[in-house]
Simulated assay, not measured.
Amino acid sequence: MLLVPALTLWVMTIVRLTAVVDPRRAHLFRATIFAAAACTLHIAPVYYAADPVLGGHNTVGLVLLLFLLTGFWQFRAAILLAVFADNVRRRHRLALGNAAMTAAGIAVTAGFLVSHTDRTDQNLPFTYGDQFGMQIFLWTGSLFVLWVCVNIISICRHQIPSLHAVTFRLGFRLIGLGSAAFCLMLTDRLVSGVVVAEHDRSSSLIDFLDTFSGVAETTAVVLIGIGVVLPRLGGPIKLLRRDLQARRLLLEIHATWRQATKGTHDVVLKPREISLLDFLRVQPVRRLHRRVIEVRDCEFKRPERPLGPKSLALVGRIEAALIGR
Rank of each mutant, 00 (worst) to 15 (best):
V191S: 01
L209K: 06
A99Y: 09
N123Y: 13
R90M: 14
V221S: 04
L66V: 02
L288C: 06
F112P: 09
L223E: 09
L205M: 11
V88R: 15
T32G: 00
I224M: 14
K270L: 11
L138G: 00
P45C: 00
A246G: 03
L174Q: 10
V196P: 00
L143E: 06
S213T: 12
R272P: 00
K301W: 09
D121Y: 09
G71F: 03
A107S: 13
I293V: 15
D188C: 11
F67W: 08
D210S: 13
G133S: 07
I79V: 15
Q259A: 15
V166F: 08
L64H: 06
R241Y: 05
R290A: 08
A165K: 10
V194W: 12
A321C: 09
L174W: 05
V20R: 15
W147I: 09
V267R: 03
F29I: 02
E273Q: 14
E198A: 15
M185S: 15
G225L: 06
I160E: 08
H199R: 10
L312N: 14
L94E: 10
D121W: 07
G225I: 05
L17S: 11
C156W: 06
I206K: 03
H265E: 15
R290L: 08
P284E: 08
P125H: 03
G111H: 04
A31E: 04
H164W: 07
V166K: 07
H27P: 07
G56F: 06
G133E: 09
F208A: 11
G71D: 00
L54W: 01
V267H: 07
I79P: 04
R248E: 11
A100V: 08
G234H: 14
W139S: 09
T211D: 13
A38V: 02
E198Q: 13
D51Y: 05
S204L: 13
A103W: 08
A246M: 03
I33F: 12
